[in-house]
Design a protein around this nucleic acid. Structure first.
Lengths: 203, 203
DNA sequence: GCCGCCGTAACTCTTTCGGGTGACCGTCGT
DNA sequence: ACGACGGTCACCCGAAAGAGTTACGGCGGC
């Protein structure tokens, strides 16, 4: 039973990675965790053959989680996921014992190749690959105005109310709303607010 | 300059606590943090006279944060906030050096009394108090159906679509929606979704 | 036994939303 | 100089949403 654990704090990236990893031949189970603590908590009862872990996470960062995981289980195989150019974090994690890392910016095929390789060869180490943003799911870029409108929505304001707050016409607010829906792939304001929370764009 | 730091991962509880603490005589500044890491990061540059810290938080839990904070600054005064019957967590935190704890379920007056006491007497230790849910801001209780409807909204579904998924008429979905809006104090579905995320009812 | 809450459903009425389209202006990058 | 993008505004139109109200059966508490 070959299982892989994906740990990333962004639910969308987590799901995207889970789906991508699930297509790797030989992988029979993919579990996910939202943070390092969850990984450590579950490791005793449920060990995976490979862990993909985001470097940047709230709480215990990826680096600290790697340290603790390896001190508990020196045989754990971990590949770091680095969303940004976090060379420090990657270097620290690899120094701590992570087997390698994946950098977002290339194909799902390379992700699969790395996972396949890591699973096939228990001694495998350090083969940097890139994972395409479209697979990782980078947060859509909203303009300042669009975020203001999204925040208004998250506070239960109507378009007209948002307009009054920002000194805009209701029609302008609707334009911003339409554009941010498109960027987020939202079907309506409730969906947009949910995606805003999931991407960490609002709180 | 007497300052108090409130650390809780729930934005609503955090705000409620901030407001309550701000009314304590002698308190001139109340800052907030959303997690343990934030507290530790800011402690070097900006120390508070008293810290109110939630026991249960994602990432570094309250207990671990207490340990680290006290190893960095043995003089720090910390009161734990326990939302649930988390006796283990409280015991660990007190063993690690927290001065006492507040348990949700009693009055704002007792919260104020505890804070006043802790600020007045640097040697003060362990006087359990209860903080009323209405002050802490307990998450509204939604029924299973209401949560299902709320989740549907957070995925961008219309009432009719939610109805088809749950084998309900659109009118019934609207009834559930209306009731959950009332419970959450939401003005529309976008607001309800936002409150659902803030209360941790959906993700 | 009654009251309150939940789940289900229907009806009406008004407001709001969301899509489509077009338009003008400023800025930035090429 | 041109185009892409963002910010502003307007108009139309159909589809939702939300508020109010009523209703009925079940279930748990007092």
């Amino acid at each position: 039973m070959t299982s892989v654990l994906v740990c990333d704090d962004s639910p969308l990236a987590r799901e995207a990675l889970r789906r991508a990893v699930a297509t790797v031949p030989g992988v029979e189970r993919v579990t996910t965790a939202a943070n390092g603590e969850e990984v450590l908590r579950r490791w005793g009862a449920d060990r995976s053959d490979l862990v993909l872990m985001d470097v940047r996470m709230p709480g215990l960062g990826g680096v600290e989680t790697v340290r603790r995981l390896l001190s508990a289980d020196p045989g754990a195989r971990i590949i770091m996921l680095t969303v940004a150019e976090d060379l420090d974090g990657v270097a620290l994690a690899v120094a701590a014992g992570a087997r390698g890392y994946l950098h977002k910016d290339a194909s799902r095929a390379e992700l699969r190749a790395t996972v396949t390789q890591a699973l096939a060869d228990p001694t495998w180490r350090l083969a940097p690959r890139r994972v395409r943003s479209s697979d990782m799911g980078a947060a859509p870029t909203l303009t300042a105005r669009e975020i203001q409108v999204l925040e208004g929505m998250s506070h239960g304001r109507s378009n007209a109310e948002i307009g009054r707050e920002l000194f805009l016409s209701e029609d302008t607010v609707k334009t911003h709303a339409r554009r941010l829906f498109k960027k987020l792939g939202a079907s309506d304001r409730a969906h947009a607010v949910a995606l805003g929370f999931r991407w960490g764009l609002v709180r």
